[in-house]
């Protein structure tokens, strides 16, 4: 998936001309996406430290309500967006996947903080899952430890941009036979079974890593930061389980 430009059939010149006369025209898609992006209901679901910053974002100073996403729902059945705010441990991962499965379409995921992206500072922990994208697809990765409330606002607006770019006809959840539910991992004697879901995530081979990030970073020498994309690897097919 990539961010699509919104393909409106009306020329932008004509649009602005009409606008001067007090007529606003838009495509159905515009209205549809405008409605959806302005009322994102996140799941009230805090995991760790980042949850506190999530609460701070919802409070008066940062005021998440400006972006229409202040209505935290306690039930996944009523939520559009799952903000995975904090370290996902192996003990918690089955529940996170289960919650994701319970959410109705269309559903989005923001991983908030380094831990939920790839384990973060706790990557050496035995019980720490190295990124929730091993089991479920993620829309926006939000780095930081913890990300500031402004960063979460950025994440929400980035998600809104994604929603704006979606087309009704091509939306995944209108495709026939698609069910975006993923198998829930189980506890094993050493860790979770399976360790990851190859439909969603695959470990990077050395050649692919080089392809994406260039040569390995040498000690003391920093190349440019990896490109900060909002989506996962385009080569990995997401869905159809």
């Amino acid at each position: 998936m990539t961010l699509n430009q919104n393909l409106s059939t009306v020329e932008s010149g004509l649009k602005s001309e009409l606008r001067k006369k007090g007529i606003v025209i838009a495509t159905l898609e515009d209205f549809y996406n405008w409605g959806r992006r302005s009322s994102i209901w996140p799941l009230q679901f805090g995991l760790a430290c980042c949850a506190i910053e999530m609460i701070a974002t919802a409070c008066a100073r940062y005021d998440l309500a400006r972006f229409g996403a202040e209505l935290f729902r306690a039930s996944p059945r009523q939520a559009d967006l799952m903000i995975i705010s904090g370290t996902v441990t192996k003990k918690m991962a089955p529940q996170v996947v289960r919650l994701y499965n319970q959410m109705p379409e269309p559903k989005y995921v923001i991983t908030m903080g380094a831990c939920s992206i790839a384990g973060g500072p706790f990557i050496d922990g035995t019980n720490v899952l190295k990124g929730i994208d091993r089991y479920i697809p993620v829309d926006v990765h939000l780095p930081g430890c913890p990300p500031r409330p402004e960063a979460l606002l950025w994440g929400i607006t980035e998600l809104q941009r994604k929603i704006d770019g979606q087309e009704i006809e091509k939306n995944e959840w209108y495709q026939r036979g698609l069910k975006r539910e993923f198998p829930i991992p189980e506890f094993g004697p050493k860790g979770l079974i399976p360790k990851f879901n190859p439909d969603v995530w695959r470990p990077e081979t050395a050649s692919r890593r080089r392809e994406r990030y260039g040569d390995p970073i040498l000690l003391g020498k920093k190349t440019a930061a990896p490109k900060f994309e909002t989506f996962g690897d385009p080569n990995v097919k997401v869905g159809t389980v």
């Binding site: 003990k91 500072p121 050496d124 019980n127």
Partner: peptide, 23 residues
């Protein structure tokens, strides 16, 4: 409990003393 067990002690034992401060 244990849903947020992040092996704090295990990580700290493999780290310098000052390195545990952010943890």
């Amino acid at each position: 409990m244990g849903y947020l067990h992040r092996n704090h002690e295990q990580i700290a034992e493999n780290m310098s003393y000052l390195g545990s401060m952010p943890y």
